[in-house]
Design a protein around this nucleic acid. Sequence first.
DNA 1: GCTAGCTTGTCAACGCTTTGTCGAATACAT
DNA 2: ATGTATTCGACAAAGCGTTGACAAGCTAGC
Lengths: 281, 281
Amino acid sequence: MYPIRVAARLTGLSTDTLRAWERRYKAVVPARNGRRRLYSEADVERLKLINRALQKTGLPIAQLAAMNNEQLSALSPQPQYQIDLQPLMQALSTFDVARIESELSRLLVLIPPREMVLQVVHPILQKVGQLYEIGQLSISQEHMISAIIRSVLGTLLRLQIKVSPTPLLLFATPPEELHEFGILSASILASAAGFPILYLGTNLPPQEIANAAQVARVRAVVLSILMQERTATLKTLRSLLPQQTQLWIGAPKHLVIPKLPATIHITDFNSFEQQLLDLKH
Amino acid sequence: MYPIRVAARLTGLSTDTLRAWERRYKAVVPARNGRRRLYSEADVERLKLINRALQKTGLPIAQLAAMNNEQLSALSPQPQYQIDLQPLMQALSTFDVARIESELSRLLVLIPPREMVLQVVHPILQKVGQLYEIGQLSISQEHMISAIIRSVLGTLLRLQIKVSPTPLLLFATPPEELHEFGILSASILASAAGFPILYLGTNLPPQEIANAAQVARVRAVVLSILMQERTATLKTLRSLLPQQTQLWIGAPKHLVIPKLPATIHITDFNSFEQQLLDLKH
DNA sequence: GCTAGCTTGTCAACGCTTTGTCGAATACAT
DNA sequence: ATGTATTCGACAAAGCGTTGACAAGCTAGC
């Protein structure tokens, strides 16, 4: 059960709007904890439905709010694909590299990029991390699997990247951060959301990043930091960037990110997509 | 049912024009929800018809508005998507990958799936094959182009595919047959013809295919074989499949396909579509 | 050939309703 | 006390409706 603030973030609506819809149309009537609203998963789902139907048909909300979920989803049908990760996880557990590859390429055909990142690649990486932690995966096996995933992500990015002279976002990692899964995935999500981007890749000194950011006049620079804290590097980069350019740091929750102006610590894809929405206004 | 704003967007006319046409000629008289106009799908369709006829013939609207839909569609012959492969072939010959990509995505929205497969993707693949044969295409170039085409085909399939618990057809390729263009194209054709399908992808051992076929109770299994003869594999698969399950082998004419019960050798898309028709009875 | 009139897309004015947001006062929890 | 929610009233922007008008293009008739 979510408080109103969270429900607003999840649905992309403002808290005022949520209350107005409830007061005027009883679009959803969340449960209460004393005075406070508590939105259930189903409430959020219905709100998303209404919002999608609103965007699609432009019908007055009063009318949409009176409909049941069935009618609403008939109004804005979303393509259905079934994702079955079972065979893939099976192949992972048995280190069947050929199988992993063919399963991935099958899914690549059937599933849109965003879902591929969030629901396929991300779970795989977590599983690989687990297996590696408990020593079930040799270094060479880890390398092979990483190479496959790297190529899948690369393909996804290349296939949908929008070439634009005025990208909004720049993606890179600082020196000695070799894993580019984070920014690759984020790039794909941003591209899938329609943002023109500039992908610089890994292992770049702050000067280079700042330079590119300035020339391309991007609105935000997205970095990925996995292992070590890098306070010095970040401070340098921040000082080199224009003030109005935002700096988004993708890094695990436990890493300490220095408090700097116009700088955000992003810990998961969910909040990354939220930031994207905010950037769009 | 759409409000006027959406109807305007869908038809490409302005809201003012829509109201003027209604007031002056009663071209369409949408329903009302209280005071507000509500355009039905049929209304929008008729407006599109009128607009197309207007563009083509330039007749006065008063006259067009008095006609019924039949007369209107006779006036502006069906959406003749003219496919101009010239720029695409040009881009192919010069290996202009970005150009190939933009041309393809342009065509993707203009042309229905079936025609996209038969009249665009297929010719491209042949051209790529030619270029590759005579050594005009490097491996990496071939890979990039293949990736693009795969993604186009994947998009087409994704947009078409019907998720069904009881698919009629199963698509796969046996091990070491990596190119999935054949079954991808065939899947799209089958989907476009309304058949629910199950797409398994490439590089699958006969046991897996037979297993899936049995569980899903498909009427036919469609394989694609490009390079080598695989008599042994086919015999194994045939023996594992239920007798009443047909086996369709898509393969070049010159490949020898063993004579097996309920097994057909398909050499082109034409006969594939013929088989589909037969399957439907 | 030229003008008067018709056709047609667009716009403005005005009224009404819808809808997102805001401010103010109040309640509750940490 | 501070921050977050809640309710209520209010407001302003946006959307839609109707009516009337106008300019540009075309047509017909002199």
